[in-house]
Design a protein around this nucleic acid. Structure first.
Length: 321
DNA sequence: CGGATTTGACCCGCGC
DNA sequence: GCGCGGGTCAAATCCG
């Protein structure tokens, strides 16, 4: 996926380079003050592409021939010679035009190929996503691990991405038994960690009373951002909780949201804000945003529902529900 | 002026 | 049935 994005970016960069090339052409035209080149260059991406390299010298030849004409005129050449020279240059021009058109065709074909490639990558990505959900769903059905949380909240799956360290609150709680969380934390100290926890959706006070009880609060010293995702069985209503260290009122997740309510929830002095997705008019997705009472820098965002529209690229990178 | 945000009112589920 | 709390609605207000 990233590769294709990079590819696209590169192609855009190439476009930019193409624009520069066009400007250079114009400069040459101004110097020669003669034939105006067809604006093929404007529509020609990948000018750094090897395929397109022959066109550059050709353009140079063209402008140089124009230079010749103007020089000869300046030195007092006859009208007939002048017209002969200009007709030959026009011929060259036509040839250049033809070759440029051919190149454009090639470039279009390559664009099509790239588009198809991108589509395939997106489809693969979605397929993998579904497989992931299936796996998670199976795990939630059969697994009896994650004792503590499974007892409390058996219907939610929690995905934790990020590094963990220094969760005094939970350390106290989990001190007695060496849970998978501790292992995750140890692993998290070495880098990125991924944990699967089970949470109870029925516990509506999850965000109010002890929102981070079942997970580690973030370690702000090194990590700017740390997410925890609580996700229900895909067969049921999707509910995803993301915890982020974020100074802004809401985290930028790439989607477009409209605030429709705000409440002071019990047990948390910080108000909880309610947002609706406005990317599509009938999108059922909502999110709740609330600051963690004990650490105002932590933003707890709970997403609910499934988007009924394709996500923007920036949102696709973040959201996987 | 239109869209987004704010905020009080209302609805609904749950526990007692 | 009543009170409480969470979630939503919609009129008022703000803002670009």
């Amino acid at each position: 996926m990233e590769e294709s994005l990079m590819k696209m970016k590169r192609s855009r960069d190439d476009d930019d380079v193409g624009g520069v090339a066009v400007k250079k052409e114009k400069t040459a035209d101004e110097e020669s003050a003669a034939v105006v080149l067809p604006k093929v260059g404007d529509e020609t991406p990948y000018c750094e592409n090897d395929d397109m390299k022959p066109s550059s010298p050709a353009k140079k030849d063209l402008s140089s021939s124009n230079n010749k004409v103007s020089v000869k005129s300046d030195t007092g050449i006859t009208e007939a010679e002048h017209s002969m020279a200009s007709s030959s240059s026009r011929k060259e021009q036509d040839e250049q035009l033809e070759s440029a058109k051919a190149k454009m065709g090639e470039v279009r074909e390559e664009n099509q190929r790239l588009k198809m490639h991108l589509d395939r990558i997106i489809k693969d990505y979605q397929k993998l996503q579904m497989q992931f959900y299936d796996t998670v769903g199976q795990d939630s059905n059969k697994s009896d691990h994650q004792e503590q949380q499974a007892e409390e909240e058996p219907e939610l799956v929690s995905l934790t991405l990020g590094r963990f360290s220094g969760d005094s609150e939970r350390d106290d709680k989990d001190k007695g038994s060496s849970t998978s969380h501790e292992k995750e934390e140890k692993r998290g100290n070495q880098g990125l960690s991924l944990a699967l926890d089970y949470k109870l959706e029925a516990s509506k006070s999850e965000l109010d009373n002890e929102p981070l009880q079942n997970s580690s609060p973030v370690n702000g010293s090194e990590e700017h951002k740390e997410d925890e995702v609580l996700q229900q069985n895909p067969a049921k209503k999707v509910r995803v909780c993301v915890r982020t260290r974020c100074d802004t009122p809401t985290m930028n997740d790439g989607c477009q949201w409209r605030k429709y309510g705000q409440k002071i929830a019990k047990g948390n002095p910080c108000p909880r804000a309610y947002y609706r997705c406005t990317v599509a008019p009938a999108c059922p997705v909502r999110k709740q945003v609330q600051r963690y009472a004990q650490d105002m820098s932590i933003l707890i965002t709970t997403y609910e529902g499934t988007h009924n529209h394709p996500l923007p690229v920036s949102a696709t990178a973040m959201a996987c529900w």
